[in-house]
Structure formats: C-alpha cells, structure tokens
C-alpha cells in the first residue's frame, strides 16, 4: 500500500526536522516547506493526503496561505489541512477553521508520539475514508 503523502510547512528548523523524522519513522512520505511562500507553491502542485500548516511563519503566515488557497484552489486536490500552532488564540484558530482547516494542534502540548497518533487519526488508518472527523486534541 502506497504510503500517505504529508506536507509539513514549518519555519523553525528544529521543529520541522523533528516532526519530519518522527513521521518518516512512522512510515509516512514526508515533504517539507520552510515558509509560507514555499509551502504555498508546494500545496498548489497538490497531491498530498494531509497538510500540516504552521501559523507564524515569515514571508507568508498560515492564514495568508489559507486565504490564497481559497482564492486560487490548487489544480490537483489535497487532503485535510491541520493547523500547527503555539498560540491558543481563538480568533486565529476560528478564522482558519472557517477557511477550511479541519483541526489544530498546539505544538507545545503534544509529544512527538501524540503527533503521530493524531496524524494517523486524520489519515483514517488503513481505510480510504478521508472524511473521518478529527477529534479535538486533549490537553
């Protein structure tokens, strides 16, 4: 079975390489982007099963990326977008949710192991069901 393709858009090097390592170990196919612009161009190429999108990034932040996507949807479809954030600022999260993001994860709250669990949930395990509703992350 083809491994799922995940795009990780995260500007902090340590965080990005950590998540990349952990998700690769878990058997996923990971691509990364280092800022909003980089992320946007990769998303537009499309074909990802899951996109993990950081909020605070240089060049374009997460919300701007979402806005751009709304106005110019990518040619090739993508799966769900999950917001990665270190802020519990509801307006930002709510805005992202209204722009099509399915869920958000608070980086400082989750361990790498929990990230893998959540990603597996989002990707619905072995089934083709991409519409599985994600549960709200516990504190």
């Amino acid at each position: 079975m083809e491994p799922k393709r995940i795009l990780l858009v995260e500007d902090d090097t340590f965080t990005r390489e950590l998540y990349e390592e952990v998700l690769k170990d878990a058997g996923f196919n990971i691509e990364t982007a280092v800022d909003g612009e980089d992320g946007l161009s990769k998303i537009k190429i499309g074909g990802f099963d899951l996109i993990l999108l950081d909020v605070m990034m240089p060049k374009k932040d997460g919300l701007e990326v979402l806005r751009d996507l709304k106005n110019n949807p990518p040619v090739s479809q993508n799966g769900q977008i999950v917001l990665l954030t270190n802020l519990t600022h509801d307006p930002v999260i709510n805005m992202a949710l209204s722009m099509g993001v399915k869920d958000h994860l608070i980086k400082s709250d989750i361990t790498p192991g929990e990230l893998v669990e959540k990603v597996k949930e989002y990707l619905g395990g072995k089934s083709q069901d991409k519409n599985q509703a994600p549960t709200h992350p516990e504190s």
């Binding site: 965080t15 952990v22 270190n86 980086k107 400082s108 361990t111």
Partner: peptide, 23 residues
C-alpha cells in the same frame, strides 16, 4: 503573548527532542 509564543518554540523543541531520546 508574543513572549510566550517565542518562549514556546525552543521549549517545544527541548521537550520533543528529550521525548525522542527517551522513546
């Protein structure tokens, strides 16, 4: 708020890498 956010990035890195070491 901004300071907290700035503080969290390195703290998350520390926490996560230690977790990796332990697990």
């Amino acid at each position: 708020s901004v300071a907290s956010h700035e503080l969290r990035t390195p703290m998350t890195a520390i926490k996560s890498y230690i977790w990796m070491g332990l697990n």
